[in-house]
Structures are given as C-alpha cells and as structure tokens.
C-alpha cells in the first residue's frame, strides 16, 4: 500500500469546550485527541498518555460527567462539552473524599495512574448519587496500576463504600 509520507494537515477547526470551568477555544485538527489538547494548550498534567489506545486508564477525564479515556475522544467531539480533570475536580467535596481515602489507605506508589483512578472513582460516586447501582471496584476496572497490586485501592474503595452507604 502506498503511504502518503508527508501528509498535508487538513484545515483546522475551531473547537470550544469548557475545561475545569474555563472556556477553551482553539483551532485544531479535528482528529486530534482530547488528551493531546489537554496536555498541550490545556496545560493539564493529570491526564497521561499511558497507551494512547484507551487501554490503561491513565488519561481518564470526565466528559460531560462521564469518565472516559481522553485518548479516544477526538477534538471535533468535544465542542460544546464540559471536560473535568483531576486538577479541576480538586476542590469538589467528592474528589476530596476520594483523595483522602486514597492517601490514607496508601493506594498509590508512583502515582502516575492515580489521577485517572481518582476521576473514575468520582464518576462512580456521582452515578451512585444519581441512584445507579455502581460497584466502585468495577468503576476502576479500566485503570491499570503496576505498582501497588491494587491492595491499597481495594481498601480505599472499602472505605468509600462504607461512607457512601452511611449517607
């Protein structure tokens, strides 16, 4: 097969979305990943390129409230959407709850995967708030961690589950 080795970039498009409460508006090629926009002009560091094929969870962000891998979302798809990352969620009370549980239970070592884990857990807690039955262990089944063996994470989830069943 012949490969076009010097592709001409296609016309950039204007994409506007809300990132952690700020409006992001920029010209970008439509197939660019949300992850690249976030790490580029978005100056976000919490979403990380662990695999670029949606199979590790290190780039998990909330897209209109749903936890998704940022590497599988294309720029054209985020126009008009709300995107929240660990940085933006840091002030939210449910994120704080997750953060405290992760820290207290030592659910992290290198911490590279942890913001993605935290975002998945926040998403799970919010779905529970909406009355859905969500098993938090299932909510992080797509977040790979290579350091901890998930022991601390299981304990943090037990704490979160206990707290949320009390309220």
């Amino acid at each position: 097969m012949t490969r076009q080795t010097q592709p001409e970039p296609c016309a950039p498009e204007h994409v506007t979305f809300e990132l952690n409460g700020d409006v992001i508006s920029q010209w970008v090629s439509p197939a660019t990943t949300l992850l690249d926009i976030l790490r580029g002009s978005g100056r976000i560091t919490s979403a990380r390129a662990g695999c670029r094929i949606g199979r590790c969870g290190a780039c998990t962000v909330l897209l209109n409230g749903q936890a998704v891998p940022g590497c599988l979302v294309m720029a054209w798809q985020v126009s008009g959407c709300t995107v929240e990352t660990a940085e933006g969620l840091a002030e939210a009370s449910d994120f704080a709850q997750v953060r405290d549980a992760l820290a207290t239970e030592s659910a992290l070592q290198c911490g590279y995967c942890t913001p993605g884990v935290a975002v998945s857990l926040v998403s799970g807690l919010r779905q529970q708030q909406n009355g859905d039955v969500v098993d938090l262990e299932e909510a992080v089944a797509g977040n790979l961690c290579r350091c901890t063996g998930y022991g601390g994470l299981k304990r943090a989830i037990a704490v979160l589950t206990e707290t949320s069943s009390e309220t």
Binding site: Q4, P7, P9
Partner: peptide
C-alpha cells in the same frame, strides 16, 4: 489500498 491513507491524525478529515 485504493485510498490514500495518511500517517498522522492531523491529516485526517472528519
């Protein structure tokens, strides 16, 4: 094979 595949995301037209 009949197409003209590209090597970069930025060249993809959506």
């Amino acid at each position: 094979s009949e197409l003209n595949p590209v090597t970069e995301r930025r060249a993809i037209r959506v």
